[in-house]
Simulated assay, not measured.
Amino acid sequence: MAPIRLLVGCVLALQVFTAALALERGCPTGTGNNTYANPALSLPYDGYLPAIDNETMYLHHTRHAGGAINNVNAILARYPTLRDSVTLADLVSKIGLKGFTHKYKIADNDTTALRNNAGSMINHAIFWRIMTSYNTSSPAAHLQPDLSALINATWGSPAGMLDALRSSASSLFGSGWAWVVYRSNGSLAIVNTPNQDNPLMQRFAAPATHGTPLLGVDVWEHAYYLRYRNVRASYLAQWVYLVDWAVVQRNYELAKAGSIDSLYC
């Protein structure tokens, strides 16, 4: 009986280990073979009205964000060790670093492609999660005292934080993102990153923008052009009413704990 119990024990341990690996890999996944899948939205495409129209959400989610995921899967197929052993957050954080590039023998053109497409994956996964239905979430109902006090000390109020985020996003030249980030010293800051760069990127994000994203707003024109044309400020004025403060609080707790992969799951 002892060998059977030992075998059963080994099988259970392997199952737990395998489950842990799958969890640690992070989201968005869903294909069962360590490739990535486009995460579902929490609302239907018309659930973001009146801030964002359903056609924009459909195209943004399926074509732009979905296209980046397809590109990442195609690149990682050439690097199975990288695909099978590195989480999305770790990939985004370390892409372009010499040691990381050398370890996985990543070609220069694939480094650039992963910067753009894996950056898009994590950026959009955070973006989808941070939004809820229009004007239904309030900071008073969801922020815990420590985060509320930190926001108030930094910007005067949650509304002041969103005003500062809108101002920063409006000032960004060209395409990119505006973020509220948590820094290792316990402070909060608003930063901008160009294109699909992310504040986690050690190699490509400017040091002044480094931090863990708590929320981010997409200011590529594909995020708003059908409804707002080129008037980014009008989009931002409406977008702030989609912020899910419960997720802001959740992301803050995860950032403090260093659970970066859970931010976009």
Rank of each mutant, 00 (worst) to 15 (best):
L97C: 06
G160F: 03
D108W: 03
P80Q: 04
S120L: 07
F204A: 13
M1Y: 02
G30R: 05
L14N: 09
D261S: 15
K103V: 03
T31E: 03
I75H: 04
A159Y: 01
P28L: 10
G47D: 02
A169N: 03
L150M: 13
N230I: 11
V240R: 11
S167G: 08
W155N: 01
N117W: 02
G258N: 06
N117E: 00
N70W: 05
N135Y: 01
D197G: 11
D197P: 01
A68H: 13
S167Q: 11
M57T: 10
K103Q: 08
D110T: 09
R78I: 00
D110W: 02
G186I: 05
L76R: 06
D46S: 15
K105S: 13
T62S: 12
S167R: 13
S184E: 09
A140R: 11
V72L: 09
L242E: 00
S167F: 04
G186E: 01
A164H: 04
T35H: 08
E55T: 15
T29N: 05
N33C: 09
N135Q: 10
P44N: 07
L200H: 02
G66C: 08
K94S: 14
D244V: 14
S259R: 15
Y48L: 10
Y224S: 07
V180L: 12
H61G: 11
A223H: 02
R129M: 07
K98I: 06
G211H: 03
M161V: 06
L43I: 10
V92D: 00
F173Q: 14
L97F: 01
I75M: 05
T154M: 00
N135M: 08
S137W: 00
N251T: 06
S42M: 12
R5P: 00
C265A: 14
L14S: 15
A118T: 09
A246M: 09
S259W: 03
A89C: 12
V243Q: 01
S262E: 08
V180K: 04
N109G: 04
T209K: 04
V86P: 03
Q238C: 08
L91K: 03
I130N: 08
N73S: 14
L236W: 01
